[in-house]
Design a protein around this nucleic acid. Structure first.
Lengths: 236, 236
DNA sequence: CGCTATGTTGACTAACATCAATCGTCGTGG
DNA sequence: CCACGACGATTGATGTTAGTCAACATAGCG
């Protein structure tokens, strides 16, 4: 509900700054340092987060301490939406600015105003879809294809570009590997291969741009499809 | 709500026959033939299913038509809980008896009686946790360990045993492989290895029993931990 | 300016996919 | 009751891919 004094086009605002129906619930800003653990798996949680700035990873730990990242989240996205035990851990990849919402307050708000729960439901639907897609890609794609898929997906999530249109990896190669089921060496080799095949151009180690596809469409199998309107929860 | 004429211990009832808080919502029984497609991914869905008998798989299809199964579901479990677009396909592995609930009716019921939505939320939480665990296992475990994990998990889900305590695979080796990121040949070889290592005993191709662990505990990393009480949604 | 974390490159190896052939089992129909 | 066919499971031979280990380079940060 925080509005500028003068009416402005909402489209011009940064994603993280956009308001949401859930803003009427009790919420407060939080800032998380790099690698800060936001919550642990199994922990009881009653807070939903909406990212304003930065990148968060959801992950689980295997028996041998090896880490599996199951999702990277970016500005505008919600996580921790389901009340109860956390199914994964959440950690800040970069410094993160987020808005924290009390679930109790959201539930209470939902009773007065329908449709409040919908963004939470949509967030979980998307997470599930992207998890399923991730498994399929890990199992059926070779290393370089998984990386290409990742490089196509990332710019859909990170809207910030410098003048030349390059996208920056906010996470380390190890993080990328822990997401795609590869180790850091293979990530390095794979990116080199993609560059030699002319599919991407790299600037340093952390920035890249896709070649031969200027498209802004994120609808293909690659990028998680956005769960569009579902009117089952009656809108007020 | 179907009760025997004489009062009986509810514990003695089969899992699929147990009643649930959601039973007050509008629902009807359905029977699904083997390999029947229950819903497609991307499809708009407004029905929740609770399995009474049989086995259901959730899956996505890769670009090359290769199939990735992301979950097997058994009696007592709910699926299709999130209103909106389906994130996966659902298909009957065996003949399935299920109860179908209208989500609209559930939502309406939830407004009169709190806590109705909780089983749906829990089901999704568990699905997410098991997806994350599945990814970790596929990536970090060799074939035989994945199969061992599967053989430990399955008896927790399938309570029916014959006198000798063997558990039957309701699904084909190809299904198991499509779940664990293996092909059918490797599933066959892996099960043979587990048997030669003395970890399982097989009866024919479809039945097995674990050796050296008579435990009924399904709490370890292997089996998806049940999301216990989360009182955020106020109970009436 | 040096330390540490992160990325790069090369050599080697093990695991699993693939292909192909064969067998077993179940269901159907003569 | 048996013959047949189809599907699923088994077994073997072979090749490729990515993990592992080791050494080194680079960048970021104090």
């Amino acid at each position: 509900m925080k509005k500028q004094g003068v009416a402005m086009l909402p489209e011009r605002r940064a994603i993280g700054e956009q308001t949401s129906v859930i803003d009427e619930a009790r919420h407060w800003p939080v800032r998380l340092q790099k690698n800060k653990i936001i919550f642990h798996p199994g922990e009881y949680g009653d807070i939903v987060y909406r990212i304003k700035k930065g990148c968060v990873r959801l992950q689980v730990d295997g028996v041998g301490g090896e880490r599996q990242i199951v999702a990277f989240l970016f500005p505008g996205e919600l996580f921790g939406c389901l009340p109860g035990r956390r199914s994964t851990a959440a950690e800040a990849v970069t410094i993160v600015d987020a808005e924290a919402y009390s679930i109790a307050s959201l539930i209470e708000l939902n009773e007065r105003k329908h449709g409040v729960a919908q963004p939470l439901i949509d967030a979980e639907s998307e997470l599930e879809a992207s998890l399923a897609q991730l498994i399929a890609n890990i199992v059926h794609f070779p290393a370089s294809e998984r990386l290409l898929w990742f490089c196509r997906w990332l710019p859909c999530k990170i809207k910030e570009r410098d003048v030349s249109g390059f996208t920056e990896f906010p996470m380390s190669y190890r993080d990328i590997g822990d997401y795609l089921g590869l180790n850091a060496e293979t990530v390095s080799r794979g990116l080199k291969e993609l560059e030699s095949r002319g599919l991407i151009t790299r600037r340093g180690r952390k920035a890249f741009i896709l070649r031969g596809e200027e498209s802004e469409d994120c609808d293909a199998t690659g990028c998680a499809t956005t769960t569009k309107r579902s009117s089952l929860v009656p809108q007020s």
